[in-house]
Amino acid sequence: MDIKDIIKPENLVYQKTSLMTDKPLSYCPGCGHGTAHRILMEVIEEMGIQSETIGVAPVGCSVLAYDFMNVDMVGASHGRAPAVATGIKRCWPEKFVYTYQGDGDLAAIGTAETIHAANRGENITIIFINNGIYGMTGGQMAPTTLPGMKTSTSPYGRDLKSMGNPLKMTELLAQLPGTCYVTRQSVHSPRNVRRAKKAIRAAFESQKENKGLSLVEIVSNCNSGWKMEPVASNEWMVDNMFPFYPLGDIKVDGKLVNNQ
């Protein structure tokens, strides 16, 4: 059978959701942001809640997320997305509200806003992209940078004594009674993408039921910041990031999983 006979509308299995705009993504080749954007939009499409969803994009590589996500969106200042989302959700409790934050945004400058939104049990969903580095500003050390990891502001490797320890915000947030669903995922392989999408769906379902804050951390690559080729950066992530940031559910239905 010729390939031309296969490529017909009736044989379509997968195409980019219309909830992603046609604008070319501003991310580096191989960056997990694009995949995370897409599965987030797929979930919103599958739940049929595009007209009920408001997204918040703060500062970071994803500062232009509103160019790519075809939902109503607001650009927030650095770190303040959970506060902005709180303002929206409190006035519109029936809408779906999510933030899309990087590690610098969520775990450094926005730590207070993140913890307090979680502690109040705001019914919002946080998508947290953790690549252990400040991508947009050119590869500086992030709160989640691994011990010994080289960045432009830790050129000899992160020294824990002088630079502090990597912050496991997701585990920390899972301890708070206000969080309902807390999980850590990745999007570097097809299997992981499918799992991450299920997690995002679960997070939005939890928001729908007003169960409290839901958080999906996505451990992702930053091949530019890590100074690697995309495929190699994903391999490095598996070998180095995952042992420190293990994948899987941390809190489900308000209950901590295993020995968290």
Binding site: Y14, Q15, K16, T17, M20, P24, L25, Y27, P29, G30, C31, G32, H33, G34, T35, R38, V187, H188, S189, P190, V193, R194
Partner: peptide, 8 residues
């Protein structure tokens, strides 16, 4: 397609 970051 599922893993393509740019959805192309």
């Amino acid at each position: 397609a599922v893993v393509c970051p740019d959805g192309v």
